[in-house]
C-alpha cells in the first residue's frame, strides 16, 4: 500500500502491495456475494411477481356487479358476505374499512334472512351487542350462549360450513343498526378494500414450499442469516491463513 517512505497512501481500490490486493479482492468477492444474495434476490422477487388474487377475491369479482345492481341471487349474496368476512378476519384492517365491511355483512345477512329469521337475527344481534358492552369476562356463560346462538343463525343464513373459520367472526361483524341499508359511502369503498387485502404479490418463489415455508420466506428468514455467518467465518478463516502464510503478527 505504500509506494515509498515519503508518500504513504491507502486506497481500497488502488492497493499497492500484494497483501493489500489480496485483501481487496477477498473483500470485493464477499461483498458481491452478500449484495447479490440480499438485494439481487429481492429485485428478482420484485421482477417476477404477479398480482395474484385470493379465491375470495375471484368470487367477489364475479358477484360484485350484481350486488351493486341489487340483482344478486341468494348464492351471490352469500359469496359476497363470505368475501367480506375473509377480509374482516385478517386482524389488521383500517377501522373505516372494517366499518364498511361490517355494514356489508350485516346488510347481506339481513337481506338473505326470511321474514321470520329477520326478527330473530335483529333480536339476537341486539342481545349480543348489549352483552358485549356489559360483561366483564368473555367466559361469562350468558355471553357465550348469545355469541354462539347468533353465530349459528347467521352462519345458516350465509351458508357457512362448520369447518369454516369465518363462523368465528360472523357474530362480531353483525351490527343491528347497519342491517337495513348498505350505505353508499361503504359501497364505494368495497372495491378498494377487496383489492388491497385480497390481492398479493406472488410468483413461483413464493408458491414453492421448502421445509414447510414459502421459499422466499425461508430464504430471508433463515438462509440469509446462515449465509451471513458463513461469509464472516470465511473471511476470518481466509485472513488468518493469509497472515500465517505471510508471517504477519497483528
Amino acid at each position: 500500500m505504500e509506494s515509498n517512505q515519503n508518500d504513504y497512501h491507502i486506497s481500497f481500490f488502488k492497493p499497492t502491495t500484494a497483501q493489500a490486493k489480496w485483501n481487496r479482492n477477498l473483500a470485493i468477492k464477499l461483498i458481491l456475494i452478500w449484495a447479490v444474495a440480499v438485494f439481487g434476490f429481492h429485485f428478482l422477487l420484485r421482477a417476477i411477481e404477479k398480482p395474484t388474487p385470493e379465491e375470495s377475491y375471484v368470487k367477489y369479482e364475479m358477484v360484485w356487479e350484481n350486488i351493486l345492481a341489487e340483482s344478486a341471487s341468494v348464492e351471490e349474496m352469500q359469496i359476497f358476505a363470505h368475501s367480506s368476512l375473509s377480509v374482516i378476519g385478517k386482524v389488521f384492517i383500517k377501522p373505516e374499512y372494517k366499518t364498511a365491511l361490517n355494514n356489508a355483512v350485516s346488510w347481506t345477512t339481513f337481506q338473505l334472512a326470511d321474514s321470520s329469521q329477520k326478527e330473530l337475527l335483529i333480536d339476537k344481534t341486539k342481545e349480543f351487542e348489549k352483552l358485549k358492552e356489559e360483561v366483564t369476562s368473555i367466559s361469562d356463560p350468558e355471553y357465550i350462549n348469545a355469541k354462539n346462538s347468533l353465530s349459528q343463525v347467521a352462519s345458516s343464513i350465509l351458508g357457512l360450513q362448520n369447518s369454516d373459520p369465518r363462523i368465528l367472526i360472523v357474530s362480531f361483524s353483525l351490527i343491528s343498526t347497519e342491517m337495513e341499508l348498505f350505505k353508499a359511502e361503504n359501497k364505494d369503498m368495497i372495491p378498494t378494500i377487496m383489492s388491497t387485502y385480497l390481492i398479493h404479490n406472488q410468483s413461483f418463489l413464493t408458491d414453492f414450499k421448502f421445509l414447510g415455508f414459502p421459499f422466499h420466506y425461508f430464504y430471508s428468514a433463515i438462509f440469509l442469516l446462515v449465509l451471513f455467518v458463513f461469509l464472516c467465518w470465511l473471511y476470518c478463516y481466509r485472513v488468518d491463513k493469509m497472515n500465517v502464510k505471510l508471517d504477519i503478527d497483528e
Binding site: H42, L45, R46, E49, E54, E55, S56, L85, S86, G89, K90, V91, F92, I93, I138, S139, N162, S163, D164, P165, R166, I167, L168, I169, S195, T196, Y197, I199, H200, N201, Q202, T206, P214, H216, Y217
Partner: peptide
C-alpha cells in the same frame, strides 16, 4: 376449524383463521 378441533388458545378460541397470505407475501398492499 375441523382439523384443529382439539386446539385452543388460552382464551378458549379454536386454533383457526381465514387465509392471510399478506403475512408472508412480499410488500403486500395490506
Amino acid at each position: 376449524i375441523t382439523e384443529t378441533a382439539q386446539m385452543f388458545n388460552a382464551l378458549g378460541h379454536e386454533y383457526a383463521m381465514v387465509p392471510s397470505p399478506e403475512f408472508a407475501m412480499p410488500w403486500d398492499t395490506a
